[in-house]
Amino acid sequence: MSVLVEFAMFPTDKGESVSSYVSRIIKFIDESGIPYKLTPMGTIFETETIEEALKVLEQAYKLLEPDCNRVYCTAKFDIRKGRSNRLEQKIKSIEKKIGKEVRK
């Protein structure tokens, strides 16, 4: 199974720039070995189960909880049985159809 998650999580009580808080989350995901892609508007990662995906979101929140009084999070899930590596494969499928590499 493949669970793709696109999410954004950040404190709303720390002013305009929250990159130092978001960096905590990205560092955790990077060190965990979970495949992910950082985008300007959020992060996309892939796990094999919904339980693993929810644990990532829970841990991300726990990294902000100690010094953030208000945390905002959006999350979208695309869950598909019988597939894996969709973080890469979905892009390759589009590239094949348009005949060129998608800008990164």
Rank of each mutant, 00 (worst) to 15 (best):
V18H: 00
S84V: 12
I26G: 10
V22C: 03
F28C: 03
S20R: 15
Y36S: 02
K37L: 15
T49C: 04
S19V: 12
K76H: 06
E88Y: 14
Y21L: 05
Y21K: 02
N69F: 04
G82C: 02
V18K: 06
E48H: 05
I79C: 12
Y61D: 11
E46A: 09
L63A: 11
M1Q: 09
K81S: 15
K97D: 04
P40E: 00
D13M: 06
I98Y: 12
R70Q: 14
E88M: 13
L63W: 12
K14P: 11
E46W: 03
G33Q: 06
M1T: 13
T74N: 02
P40L: 00
D67F: 05
C68H: 06
G33M: 07
E101S: 09
E58S: 15
P66I: 05
F45E: 07
Y36I: 06
T43N: 13
R80Y: 05
K97E: 11
E48R: 01
E58W: 04
Q89N: 15
Y21A: 08
I50S: 01
I29T: 07
I44C: 08
A75C: 05
E101F: 07
T74P: 06
E65V: 12
V5A: 01
V22S: 03
S20D: 15
K14C: 13
I94D: 00
F10C: 03
A53D: 07
E48P: 03
E95Q: 10
F45K: 10
M1R: 00
